[in-house]
Every structure is written in structure tokens, then in C-alpha cells.
Simulated assay, not measured.
Amino acid sequence: MNRRRFLITGGAGLAFAGIGTLTWTYIPGSARPLTTDAAMQTLSVLAENVVGINGEWNLPQVLVHCAQSIEYSLSGYPEHRSDTFKQTAGALAFTAFAAKGRMHHSLNEKIPGAPEIDVTTRLQPAIARLASAFATFEQHTGELHEHFAYGKLTKADYEIAHVMHFYNHLDAAIFKA
């Protein structure tokens, strides 16, 4: 192995290890169960308890975004990161998130290739769409499509990813006092 290749691959390895360490250290663990059932229970009381959400999207847009992610795991994501990214940084990020039981990502970043979510989307239809996506995912017995950033996930891994994703977006929710 020549010196340049060693420095490039070694530097990438250190960067990924650093990302994992930062993720592990600075993202608090989750006490919420990472199951579809728990997420559905949270969703069922959302309308009565959330008055708003911090960020660029309103609550209905956030719920539709979460539904899109679940739907794309069943139908295929419109765009993907490179295979190299999915096999390195993406896989490491998912592993760190799953080990911690909590995800942290940009709450204003749409799924690559997904259509814009209408700002006038109403709350009840958004709740219904996310509930339907969770239910459809739970009942699904076929193959799942590769995640656009994490790569190939098992159904159990996808369940954890979808629930952590939903909970991460709820971190920005403003709850009734």
C-alpha cells in the first residue's frame, strides 16, 4: 500500500470513528420504546398535545415527511447516496443511532428526490397518512428497499430507523403546558 492511499483510507477511517464517537457522546439515549406500536400510540395523542413545532416545516409537513420515509422503504427511495457512503458513513450512523436508541439529523432536510410537501397540508390527514404508513409497514412481509443513506436494513432495523426518525422530529415539537 502506498503512503498516499494509506493516508486517504486512514484519514477516512479516523473521520468515521470521530463521527461515531460524537454521535455516541452527544446524543442522549432514548427512554421511549423503538416499536411501531409505541410510535402509533404517540401519534394517536399528538393532535391534543402539540401546539406547534420549531423549524422550517409545520407539524403536518413533518408527519408527511415521516410517512414518506416509511412508504419509500416499501416502494423504493427516489434517490440514493453513493454505495460508498451507504457502506461507510451511512452504516456507521445507523449503527450508532440504533445503539444509542436515538437519532439526530437535520429536521428541515427533505428525502432526496421526494416531492415538496405542501405547506397547507392539514393535520388530521397527515396523522392518518403516517398511521397508515406505520400500519402498512408493520403488516408488510415482502422485501424492503435499500435505505437511501443507511443501505440495506432488515425489517427490525427499519422499524427502529422509522421510529427514531419520527421521535427525532418530535424533539422539535412544542407541547401544551
Rank of each mutant, 00 (worst) to 15 (best):
T35N: 06
Q87V: 11
M40V: 14
F137G: 02
R81E: 11
Y167W: 04
L22Y: 13
H105P: 02
A114P: 03
V62H: 04
V64I: 11
T154D: 01
S82Y: 00
V64T: 09
Y72H: 02
Q68P: 01
G52H: 05
H169Q: 03
H147G: 06
L7V: 13
L63V: 09
A177H: 12
G20Y: 02
E48F: 06
S30V: 11
A38G: 01
A38T: 11
Q87E: 14
F85K: 10
T36I: 13
R4S: 15
S44F: 05
I19K: 12
E56H: 12
H65Y: 00
N2D: 14
H145P: 08
P115L: 02
I27E: 06
L59Y: 04
K176V: 13
G113S: 02
I127P: 00
D157H: 06
G20T: 08
A96W: 05
A128D: 10
G18Y: 00
E159F: 01
I160R: 15
Q87I: 12
L14T: 12
A177E: 14
A89T: 15
F16T: 14
Y158D: 09
A156V: 11
A126S: 10
L153T: 02
G13V: 10
G151Y: 00
H165S: 13
S106E: 13
E146F: 04
T21A: 14
P60A: 04
G76N: 04
A17W: 05
K152L: 14
F175E: 10
G76W: 01
N2W: 09
A172Q: 07
R102P: 07
N108H: 12
E159H: 05
A114T: 01
I174K: 08
G52W: 01
S106T: 15
L74W: 00
N49E: 06
H104I: 14
L34Q: 09
R129Q: 08
G13W: 09
H140Q: 09
D171L: 12
E109D: 10
G52C: 01
Q139H: 12
H104R: 15
P112E: 00
S73I: 03
G10W: 02
K100V: 12
L22K: 11
S73V: 05
N49V: 10
A15G: 07
N54F: 06
H105L: 12
F16H: 15
L123F: 01
T23M: 11
R102C: 13
N49R: 11
L170G: 02
F6S: 13
V64C: 00
A126E: 03
F175H: 12
L92C: 10
F94V: 05
A133W: 00
M103E: 03
G76Y: 04
G55N: 03
S69D: 12
T25Y: 13
T42P: 06
P115N: 07
S44V: 03
S82W: 01
G13E: 08
H147N: 05
L153F: 01
L170R: 09
L130V: 08
A17V: 14
Y150C: 07
L63P: 02
G10D: 00
A133R: 00
Q139D: 06
L43E: 03
D118R: 04
G151S: 09
K100P: 08
P28E: 10
Y26V: 14
E71G: 00
H169T: 03
H165T: 15
T42D: 13
L43D: 01
A67N: 04
Q68G: 02
T88I: 06
P60G: 04
V50E: 02
F148I: 06
T95L: 06
R102Q: 15
R32L: 13
Y77E: 00
F175T: 15
L14D: 05
P125L: 06
E79D: 10
